[in-house]
Structures are given as structure tokens and as C-alpha cells.
Amino acid sequence: MSMKHLIPAALAISAAAFALPAQAGKTLDAVKARGQVVCGVNTSGPGFSNADSQGRWTGLDVDFCKAVAAAVLSDANKVKFVPLNSQQRFSSLQAGEIDVLSRNSTWTLTRDASLGVLFTGINYFDGQGFMVPKKLKIDTAKKMNGATVCVQAGTTSEKNVADYFGANGMKYKSVVFDTAEAITSAFFAGRCQVYTTDMSDLAGARTKAPNADDYVILPQVISKEPLGPSVRRGDDEWFEIVRWTLFAMLEAEEHGLTQANVDEQKTSNKDPNVQRFLGVSEDTGKLLGLDAAWAHRIVKQVGNYGESFERNLGPKTPVALPRGVNNLWTKGGLMYAPPIR
């Protein structure tokens, strides 16, 4: 067995065998003492988390980690990124190797209720789709009977594709790889006719093709894939901080607060919601175990949700995903934050 596969197992076993039971409130203290938020991210997910040649991480999930660090440690750069593949992610969180898992992971009942982790919210509404080479002239997923399908091990995609083909009375042969890199290289080499995963991943993978125009993403979306960050169970205080960090990013967008204007808005904007949000009239941070300026720092250092989306996934990026359902509820999307008061 290669080391790579021993790691999650060893983590899980050592965590279960030797660690003391988790105690509430300990994560925040540990993060402060360490001076760093340890954040689990995708090894390679263009637009979500990707390291450039200098080792700088960018992406929607990466920005979320930075926002947590800005809120808790006052510095968005105090994050240690731990790249994880789909099989390691939950073991790593269970074992306490990371403080937050922000790695485009689907929120499902099984994961929420049996893995010892809790999802804190949804930072991207996704769905599973299919990518095929253009030359096969497949225009609908219903024409894929008998196809060889490349899929990543240990993902919800693996189950969804079985459900979809089963429900439509179609057969397929799966080839299961353990990393996204292995899949894209096998798919672009022509080992499979179909690559299935979340739509956003497909868009990212397509940018890595020798010639992106040779591949099409089919219109069918076969599942709901609400992606979001998660934390270990048993630490409610930390859970609240991570949950409200995302809400703060959404709330900032709703009020039109951006990285560029937040300092000026702090004094000029007299909207009581904004005054409260930026810690001018009330100290909402105290209730979370943080200080009054926590939300101000998130916007100042990382930006609001919309800014993060445009920067990493928007039309100007290679991934070029439409905002779609990930727009704010006020603009016809699903993104909605409870009031911060």
C-alpha cells in the first residue's frame, strides 16, 4: 500500500486511539496560540483552490480560509493551507490535523450525521454534470449508454452516476482514480468517453485540456451538490465563528460593502445595519468570542462574497462560471445570510 493511502487511515486510527476527547472552545484557543488557521483545501481545483508556481494559494475556498483568519487572527495571511484529496479530507478533520475543511465538499445527511463533522453553510451551490469529447457528437446525457466513465474515488459523484445510469436504464463502465489529476490525464488521453463530477470542477478541468474547445460540458445536471466548509464536532464556539464568517461575506455584498469602499463606508454610511455590521454601533464580535471589528476586517482584507466569486470563478477567469444560483437572494440567487444583529 502506498504511503498516500496509509495517511488517512493512520490519521483516523491515531486520532481515535490516542487523542483525548475533544473539548468545546478549544479550537479558538489553539488557533490563537498557534497564530495560524490550519485550513484543508483541494489539491487542485481551479477557481476553488489552486497553488501557483510560487506556492501562493488562490480560489473561492482559499478566500474563505483567509476570511476566517482575518476574523480570528486579524490577518488574512495567517493561514496554513493543507492540500487534501477527496479521501483524506474528513479523516484529516476528524484527527484534528486541520481547523477548517474548506474543500468543495458536498453537504449530505450521511456526512453531517455520521462522520463526526458539521457543515457550517454553503459557499457554492453546485450540481453534477458530464464532460465529453466534442467529436463523439453526444449532445445529451441520455445518449451515453455503454460509455466508459472516469470518476474520482470517494466522492458523491461516484454514487450519483450509479443512480443516474440506473434510473435511466443505461449501462456504463466506471474507471475510478483517487486524484483529480489522474482523472484529467486519463480523460484527456482518451481512456474514458465521459468525465463526471461537479459542474464547477468540470469547468475547471476543461481549462487544463490540451485544447479546451475539443470538449463539451453537457447541459444535464443530475444532482444537488451544495458545497461548503465543515468543522469538527464538539466545539460549538468554533462552529459559530466559521458559520458567521461566511454569512459576513454574504451580508457585506448585500450592503454593497467592498474591499475598496469599506473604510469610507464605516464613517459615511448611516444605515444601522451597516453600522452594526462594521462594529461601529454595536459589538457583535463579543458574542462570537471575537472583537468588534471582525466583519470589517473580513471585508477589508478578503472582500465580500461577490468579489471573491468574480476574482476566482467569474467571467474574467479561465474557469468563467456564471453567477447563476450563487447570486444573492435579492438578485434571484440562493445566497442568503441570516441578519447579523
Binding site: H5, F90, R111, E158
Partner: peptide, 27 residues
């Protein structure tokens, strides 16, 4: 033969890997 996972051959370890992720029962 457990190195099968790197090239996508569905051997015992590959299937076990998938199972761990579907149900989280690594131990």
C-alpha cells in the same frame, strides 16, 4: 497489487477507499 489504486484498477484497496469515503468508517 494494492498499488492498483493509482491506475484505477478496482482491487480491494480501491474499493475500500471508496467505501471509507461513502460511510466514513475508516477503522
Amino acid at each position: 497489487s494494492s498499488l492498483a489504486v493509482v491506475i484505477g484498477y478496482p482491487d480491494l484497496v480501491s474499493i475500500a477507499n471508496t467505501s471509507i469515503n461513502q460511510n466514513g468508517q475508516a477503522l
